[in-house]
């Protein structure tokens, strides 16, 4: 299962990138404020980039969070069901997650292409290409859905955790 191993590593690497981007955002804000208060000109890109980092963290962490069961779910009611029904229902919920997320990924992908065609720009403290947010959502939804599919193939019956901190 070489392919699966590579895939697992890729998911982990994305989550690591999310962590790194949070660390860099922290430093960027510190540098920005320090420059501003010492008579230098702060970088204009900081606030726009940090805002987009929030979206990046959301989508980059999503598949890995799905793997470790850190997307909060309420399992209290399902837990009371008999075992067979519980795993059947669990699988059905995971399938539904895959469908929902892949539908969103498909539409977000279509909109990415559309925005690219419009040449739109998101004007913040600096201008950011308009398709970027859509592309991030497309990738995030798509990979998160894929992770649920992998969960299903691995025989798991639970979509989310009760907190996996």
């Amino acid at each position: 299962m070489k392919a699966l191993q590579i895939y697992d590593r890729f998911t982990l690497a994305l989550a690591a990138a999310a962590g790194l981007s949070l660390a860099l955002s922290t430093l960027a804000i510190v540098v920005d404020v320090t420059l501003r208060n010492t008579g230098f000109r702060p970088f204009q890109f900081t606030s726009a980039v940090v805002e987009y980092v929030m979206l990046f963290v959301t989508v980059a962490a999503a598949p890995w969070l799905a793997r470790i069961g850190a997307h909060v779910a309420i399992n209290a009611l399902v837990d009371r069901l008999p075992g067979g029904l519980q795993s059947l229902l669990g699988r059905a919920v995971i399938v539904l997650c895959v469908v929902v997320l892949e539908v969103l990924a498909w539409r977000a992908g279509a909109l990415t292409i559309q925005e690219w065609g419009f040449g739109s720009v998101d004007i913040r403290s600096i201008a950011i290409p308009g398709w970027l947010a859509y592309a991030l959502l497309c990738a995030g939804f798509g990979l998160m859905g894929l992770e649920f599919l992998v969960k299903l193939l691995r025989g798991e019956t639970r979509a989310g955790g009760d907190g996996a901190h």
């Binding site: 419009f118 040449g119 739109s120 720009v121 998101d122 004007i123 201008a127 308009g130």
Partner: peptide, 14 residues
């Protein structure tokens, strides 16, 4: 929706 009122510069990029 059918109609909107708002700043045009929000779409300065387009």
């Amino acid at each position: 929706v059918d109609m909107q009122y708002g700043p045009a510069t929000y779409y300065l990029g387009k």
